[in-house]
């Protein structure tokens, strides 16, 4: 049992613990579970007409709290046993940054669609991804972006009469 106790570098280990994805996500899920169960607490649990709207959420909310606590505790214990090992799997921040920027561009595209319509917003997204994420020459990216946007227009609204979001320009 003694070897479980932290020896040197206790502080670093505890900081690393909070950097660990499992610990963080488990903590978030504990909070979500508490939220679900308390929110459900405002509703009817059981009435003359049978189980109410709170009946089911209360139970899966509690299950979520319990399971995420188990995950939290086991991970912390595991990290304390082998803190050095865990630190070795450093995430590739460069890749994560690239993915998150792509996601942000996607989100901006979805937002702009309200005003610019699908065609323009999508062409902008495509241009951004091709040039920024994949580092392709802008001319080629521009051609590809316009071509794919037109392709979507041909297939969906034109050939299949599926409506796409339109903006202030009317397309």
């Amino acid at each position: 049992m003694l070897r479980w106790l932290p020896g040197r570098g206790t502080r670093r280990v505890s900081r690393d613990i909070w950097r660990n994805g499992d610990v963080l996500s488990a903590a978030v899920l504990v909070a979500l579970g508490v939220y679900i169960a308390t929110e459900a607490g405002n509703w009817v649990y059981y009435s003359d007409d049978g189980p109410g709207p709170a009946f089911f959420p209360v139970w899966y909310g509690i299950a979520m709290v319990v399971l995420s606590l188990v995950l939290l505790v086991t991970t912390v214990v595991r990290l304390r046993q082998g803190g050095e090992q865990a630190a070795a799997e450093a995430p590739d921040w460069e890749g994560i940054r690239r993915a998150l920027i792509t996601w942000a561009a996607f989100a901006v595209c979805a937002l702009l669609m309200k005003w610019l319509g699908f065609m323009i917003a999508f062409a902008m997204l495509a241009f951004f991804i091709i040039t920024y994420v994949f580092r392709q020459p802008p001319v080629m990216a521009g051609v590809a972006a316009v071509a794919t946007a037109l392709g979507f227009y041909l297939v969906f609204p034109l050939a299949l009469s599926v409506a796409l979001p339109t903006g202030v320009f009317g397309f």
Partner: peptide
């Protein structure tokens, strides 16, 4: 891939919008 990925995102957008406009 640099063309395919934007197309996947585009089809996903169309699919989500198509659910109920």
């Amino acid at each position: 891939v640099h063309i395919l990925f934007p197309i996947i995102l585009g089809i996903s957008l169309v699919g989500a919008y198509g659910v109920s406009g």
